[in-house]
Simulated scan of single mutants.
Amino acid sequence: MNHRRARAAHHAHRLRDLHRRILESPVGLGWNRARRMELMHRAMGFAALGFLTLVPLLIVVAAADPASGEGFARWLGEALGVSESSQEEVRDLFGVPDEALQRTTAFGLAALTVFGLTFGSVVQTGYERVWDLPTARWHTMWRHVVWLALLIFALVAFVNNPVPEDAGWLGYAGALLDLIGTFVFFWLSQRLLLGGRVRWRALLPGAVTTALAMLGLRIFSQLVFSPLIASNAVTYGPFGTVLVIQSWLVGVGVVVYGGALVGRLIHERRTERRIRSDFGLP
Rank of each mutant, 00 (worst) to 15 (best):
R91I: 12
A175K: 12
N160H: 05
W169M: 08
R21D: 02
G45P: 04
T118Q: 10
P162R: 12
G280A: 01
P56N: 05
G240H: 03
F186I: 10
L170Y: 13
H19L: 06
F153I: 00
F94C: 05
H3L: 14
I59H: 00
W142N: 10
Y257V: 03
P66F: 09
L179A: 15
G280W: 04
F225G: 07
W75N: 06
W142V: 13
A47S: 07
S85E: 14
A79T: 12
A149R: 15
G196L: 02
R21M: 01
L176K: 07
T135R: 15
S25W: 06
D92W: 06
G30K: 01
R33A: 02
T104F: 07
V130D: 05
M214Y: 10
A110K: 09
W138Q: 12
E99V: 14
W138K: 10
L204N: 04
D178V: 12
S25C: 05
L179Q: 14
L281S: 01
W31F: 02
V27I: 08
V244L: 10
G30E: 04
L133D: 06
L133C: 08
L23V: 01
W147I: 05
V254D: 04
N32C: 05
G259F: 00
V82E: 08
L170A: 11
A64M: 13
G240V: 09
A12N: 08
P26G: 00
L150I: 11
L212H: 02
G77A: 13
M141N: 13
V234R: 15
H10L: 14
F220C: 09
S189M: 13
R74S: 06
V60K: 08
L101P: 02
H13P: 00
W31P: 02
W138R: 14
T125V: 11
G253M: 01
T235G: 01
F107E: 11
V122Y: 15
D92M: 12
A149I: 01
E89G: 05
L217F: 06
W147R: 07
A154V: 11
E88Q: 12
L150D: 14
V90N: 07
L176G: 14
N2R: 13
A110V: 10
P97A: 01
A47I: 15
F107T: 14
G280Q: 00
A175D: 11
D65T: 04
R129E: 03
G77R: 12
G195N: 10
